[in-house]
Every structure is written in structure tokens, then in C-alpha cells.
Write a protein that binds this DNA or RNA. Sequence first.
DNA 1: TTGAAAGCGCTAACAG
DNA 2: CTGTTAGCGCTTTCAA
Lengths: 333, 333
Amino acid sequence: VTKAKNIKDIAKLANVSAATVSRVINQNGRYSKETEQRVKRIIKEHNYIPNMSAKGLRTNQTFVIGVIVPDITNNHFASLVLKLETGLFKHGYSCLICNTNESRELEQKHMKSLSAQNVSGIIVISGMQDYPELNDLPIVYVDRPSKDMRSNRAMIESDNERGGYLATEELIKAGCKQIAILKCLYNDPNQVLRYEGFKRALAAYGIAEDTPLSEDLSEVSFDAAYNKVKSLLDRKANFDSLMCTTDTLAAGAVIALRENGLEVPRDKLVTGFDDCQIAEVCGPGITSVHQDVDEMAKLATRLLLDMINKKELDQLYYKLPVSLTIRSSTTKL
Amino acid sequence: VTKAKNIKDIAKLANVSAATVSRVINQNGRYSKETEQRVKRIIKEHNYIPNMSAKGLRTNQTFVIGVIVPDITNNHFASLVLKLETGLFKHGYSCLICNTNESRELEQKHMKSLSAQNVSGIIVISGMQDYPELNDLPIVYVDRPSKDMRSNRAMIESDNERGGYLATEELIKAGCKQIAILKCLYNDPNQVLRYEGFKRALAAYGIAEDTPLSEDLSEVSFDAAYNKVKSLLDRKANFDSLMCTTDTLAAGAVIALRENGLEVPRDKLVTGFDDCQIAEVCGPGITSVHQDVDEMAKLATRLLLDMINKKELDQLYYKLPVSLTIRSSTTKL
DNA sequence: TTGAAAGCGCTAACAG
DNA sequence: CTGTTAGCGCTTTCAA
């Protein structure tokens, strides 16, 4: 079988013009059944694959979606990305993955690069900024609020405040009085909301917040949580439980406790947030706020594709409900 | 500031030809210091971003790398992808992420799609197949052997056999006599190699393999491992330890044991493979075979870029050493 | 139902 | 050192 590199080769082989081949490929009608079948046969026989750069240049549509994510090694984000990629690929779109490593600068560089590549749309997961200057580009902001509202922008977030409330309430109901919180408000509105929920729960149950136990972490990471808990223990801080604003933090906490001879839930209760694999697997299993990642991904995919295809969206903003997945870490023995 | 969409606009504004602008952008020389600065200034002022589709069409170089991966939610793969993406982006390349979900068919579809998109190169992680038909495309096969050898193919794997040996030896040295192995040979040469190592270690220490304990899993997944261990316990199989060919399997095993009131390492010893987050965090911490993901990523990046830039490679095949990260799961109390 | 022709934005000869 | 020109492969009028 000879190699047909481009649409002209196919046209020649099928005794039609390139225009007709193009119409067949794109199912644009205006060709006979006969021609269609012949062209399709030739394409298959020669294993012809259209050149997407040319198509992209011509149509200004690349069928590539940029996905911005803080860190793909975080299981919560990875789950989201897996579902997004799988869903989008079914519709003929590929995903450019961009890790920002929580750096504002890298995030901007990536957005610029995506725009240069003429991506069809962008999904920004837990981004740190809006991008109103990317005028015509459809963008879905996932996992964070955004001010950038208009017809080609959408926004999906979980009810983080309620999540914070639920987790805290669970600890209170288990009898906890001195709840430390592991969080880092700086730069992340979700963290702020989870903390709001925390405070609302304390207030609802008439518990005063113990400010030293609420001190911010330097960053949202396993190590930061691990070190914070070590230092709490070192200075003999008085706490009976830890409300952690992500599962990664919860894992760091559990490990730090264990290394100091403390067991969860025997000695301290712990809650996490995201309900990802680490919560299932860490220590005795960590009670965690479940986000509906599946729905998030489905919604983001649908909204983005609709925007790309210039469909009117009935709704541009979604706040998804959360639930609590209860595991051993909050079960007093 | 007016909007300059394309290179001609910039050229006009800078009083030069498009060719000169192109030269400046690509640092191709053959322009005066003066012109360069003027052009650069105009570009910056107008926030001009070159169109990559056009560039790609013209040069047949897209600066996009396809990354094929079985499942990005596996922390081992996620770590690899993060490092690859970060490294490649520094060199101006973006990564198209493709999850195959272990499906041969999806893998092929993705490869075809990548080829259509004129990617500059492909990194195939734990792929199930070679792609010799993608003639001119540089490909690095990571995490698996490959028969597709030539100048624009490279291949990097860990010493899986030795990993299997080390893990098994660790169990034996801790006094284990009846070692069950959780594996799934079907479709994955790495699994086979790890199993080879397992058998070699048994032989070296004069232990006979207990065939019923070596039965294959239906697939490599947390659930498969979980169910397998449950069924081993149900039928009162005689084993003192579990050698697991991935950390995910080890996690499934640990959880299944725990749910049956058995603790690691008190009642059973366990080893994993990959030394990823889950091994650090699961149960008491799981002893696991460490793969040098960092070196893998660096090597893959370098080799791929060299192939893209037509540099002669001194070596096309790399087998990276592994080590054992020892944690509590193999420490008899 | 089909084909001819123009052009998307860029780069690479080639000429000056 | 710089500009002119000719496409890369595809889609899309327009005309037939």
C-alpha cells in the first residue's frame, strides 16, 4: 500500500478534488453516496490521517483542550484529569496537561502557551487567577470561584464551606473539644471557605476557636502538615483532633502522630477533605469530605463543548453538593 | 494598545518584513541589534503570540509531545508525568496526556491521534505495544522493554527482575516461609520480570513456590488485590506474607487484612513495588521497591529532545537500578 | 454534486 | 542585514 500523505493524494487516488475529500471527511454533505464510499475506502486503505496543524490553521479550531492543574500527583486532581481526558477524547478532543506547581507565574506562562497553540478551550482547575484577556477562548474554571463571567466562561465548584462544616461537626459530635485545623489560607479561596465552615460549626456548637491551633501552614503539602503536627506535639499543644483541609494534609498529620506513638482514632481524631485514595488507605482510613469529581468532570466537559460549539448555556455557575465519607479516623473506639 | 494578530501586523508596525520578524522570534540571526530591539518591543507592547498551528504546518514541528500512560491516577505514573511535563515545558514543549486505561485499542487510537497532530515526539509509559509504523516519529518507551529498535527510538526500564528479587529476599530474611504473590502476568512484561525475581529469590533460599499462592489476579487493581486476599483468608490459605507487584496491590492487601482483623506486620508481612505515596502512607508504611522516577524522567526528556534535534544518541537502551525502601511492613516486631 | 482557487500565519530559499 | 516569494495541508466560498 503506497503512502498517501495529504488530502491531494487521496483526491487523486479517488478521482475527485481535494474539496470533495474534505467534505467527506468532515461529513459536510454535498457529495453522492457513491463518492463518499469510494473516498472513505481510499482513506482507510492508505491509512490516511489528516494533518491537524493545517486544519487548525484554516479553521482556527485545534480540537485540543488545555487543562491547567496545580499538581497532577495529587490524587484528587488526577482523578479529575482522568475523567476529563477520557470524556473529551470520546468527543475527539485531546488534552494538553499543564502543571502549575501552585506558581502564579507558571500558570500564566501555561495560559499564554495554550493561547498560542490555538486550543479550542481551557479547563482551569484550582487556578489562582482569572483570564478575562483571553477573550474568545471558552474557559471553564473548576474548583474555585471566579469573577470572569460572560457567555464563554463557566465555573464549577464544590460547596467547600459546607464541607468544612460537615467535617468539623463530625469531630464535635464524636466529642472533640479542642480541634486544631491544618490549613493555608494564602492564595486559595477554597481553603478560606473550608475554614469558614469550620468556624461556623464551632459557633453552632458553642465552641470557642483556639487561635494557636488555627495557625496557618506555610503551604498545602504533606511535609508542611507533618512538620506542623510535630511542632504541636513538641510544644505539648492541647488538642484532641485535627480538621485538615485536604487529604494530603491529613496524611501528613496521621504519619506525624504515629511517629510520636499516637494512634488515630485512639489518641486523636482526624478528618480530611477530597475523599481521595489517600484517605481510604492512610492509617485506619480517614473520614473525608467527598467531592463529586465525577459530576464535576461531566459538567466541565459538557459546558466546555457547548461553549466551543456556540450553544447557549442555561447556567454558567454550578455549586456541587458535598457529603461526608465516614471512616475509622473519627470513630471513637 | 491595538491588537496585533499576526506576524504581518507586527512587521508593519516595526517597519520591517514578516521574514525579519520571524527571524527575530526564532533567533535565527541575520538582523541588526537595532531591528531586533524594535521588533521585540513591538511584540511585547502588543502582546503578540505567534500562531503555533501555522508554525507547525510550515515547519512540521509542533513542540507538542504525546505522553501515553495507563492511568494517571496511579501515583507512580503521575509522578513520572509531572516530571516529564515540567522538564519538557522548560524546553518549550507541551504535553498531550493520553490515558489508555490499559486498553490496547485505546492506546492505538491515541497513538494514531498523536500522529495526526504532528506531535514532535511520543513518550509511551508502560505501553502494550510497539509502534514501528510511526516511522519518523521519535519515541521513547518507558517502563517496558521494546523490540522497536532504531535511531529514533529509545527505551528505559527499571531492573524489574532485581526489584522482585529484593522484595522477596526481604521477606525471606524476615523469616517468611510461605509467601503469597499478588501479580497479573497477562499483558505486562514488567509483572513477568518481577515474578521472575520472586522465583529466583525463593530458589536462592531453597524455598519451594506454593503454586496456589501464586495464582494470577484478574487485573492489576486495588479491588482485585483486595478480593484476592479476602478469598485467601476465606479459604484459610496458609501464608505468612504477601509480595505485591505494585503498591496499589499492596494497599488493597493491607486493607483486606485489616478488615479481617489482621495487622501488618504483626500477622502478615507485605512488600510493594514502585515506592509511591501510597506505600508511604498505607497501614504502617509498606516496604517497597524504589524506582528512580527522577532519573527516568530526566533521561526520557533528554533522549527525546536529542532525537527530535537529530543528535546522535550514544545509547538507546537504559536499565535503571532499583533499591528497596524499607518500612514497617516487613519489620517483625 | 463537484471543482477551482484563494488564503489561514508562518518560514525558508533566494535575491539583493 | 533585509525583503520578496512560494508554499506547508486544509477548508470554503464561488461558479459550474
